[in-house]
Simulated scan of single mutants.
Amino acid sequence: MPTRRNILAGLGAFALAPAARAASPMIFTDQGAAILGFDTVSYFANGGPIAGNPENALMWKDAVWRFASDANREAFEANPRAYAPQFGGYCAYAVSQGFLTTTDPKIWHIVNGKLYLIHSHPMDREWMRDPEANIVRAEANWPSVLYG
């Protein structure tokens, strides 16, 4: 029968083991929906975000992607990497600075054919000071920033 001393000794070894760091999900979601439920294809096809329909959705990278139309869903299915926001939909400026934060789907930019989402207007002002340099920094930080 184990004694209190044996149990405590076993727990001590466990307590000294290095703690595993939890990783953030690869895709930022709110209750499972990417881009807060906005249609990612709409940024390219409609010139801005349109709310997606929960009945017109699909799963990709453990996130639900909603679309305003069958055509947009089909375009995404054919080439999701062409439409998905960079850095998993996390704030591109925050990733450039080495951390993660949520995004406002209505604050966005398309640079060289890629979608970048930003958290807030103040962060957007910082992003716009030098988008190309921010992209380079964010790419250097991605995906290791997920484990930070």
Rank of each mutant, 00 (worst) to 15 (best):
A82V: 07
R81K: 13
P25T: 05
N79K: 12
M26Q: 12
R66C: 13
Q86P: 00
A84Q: 06
S144V: 07
N134T: 00
T40A: 15
P122E: 10
G89W: 03
V41N: 03
R66H: 08
A84L: 04
L36A: 14
A57W: 01
A19V: 05
N79M: 03
L58P: 02
M59N: 09
D39L: 04
N46T: 05
G10C: 03
M59E: 10
C91D: 15
T3K: 06
A15L: 13
R81Q: 13
Q31P: 00
Y90T: 05
Y43V: 04
N46A: 15
F44N: 08
Q31C: 05
M1C: 04
I110Q: 05
N72C: 01
A13M: 10
A71H: 01
R81C: 00
R21F: 03
P143G: 08
A13N: 03
I118D: 07
R81E: 15
R4T: 08
R137F: 10
T3P: 14
D70H: 09
G113K: 09
A34V: 04
L8S: 02
F38D: 07
L36C: 02
R129G: 11
D70K: 07
P49T: 00
M59I: 13
F28P: 00
R81D: 14
I7V: 14
R129C: 02
A75V: 01
D130L: 06
Y116F: 14
S42K: 05
I27E: 01
A20K: 07
R4E: 13
N72F: 01
I110V: 15
R4N: 10
G113A: 05
K106M: 10
S120A: 11
E77A: 15
N56S: 04
Y43R: 04
F67G: 01
T101H: 05
P18V: 07
A33T: 03
M1G: 10
W127A: 08
P54M: 06
S120D: 12
W108R: 11
A92Y: 09
I7A: 14
A22M: 04
A20L: 15
T101W: 05
G98I: 08
P80A: 02
E132P: 03
P122Q: 09
T102P: 00
G113H: 13
V136E: 14
F67E: 01
S42P: 01
A19W: 00
P2S: 07
H109V: 03
V95P: 12
A34R: 04
R137W: 07
N112T: 06
M1Y: 08
F99N: 09
A75E: 06
R4C: 03
H121L: 13
S120V: 03
T102E: 09
F14Q: 13
P85N: 12
P105N: 07
H121Q: 14
I135K: 05
M123I: 11
R4D: 11
N134D: 09
L100H: 08
R4P: 00
G148M: 02
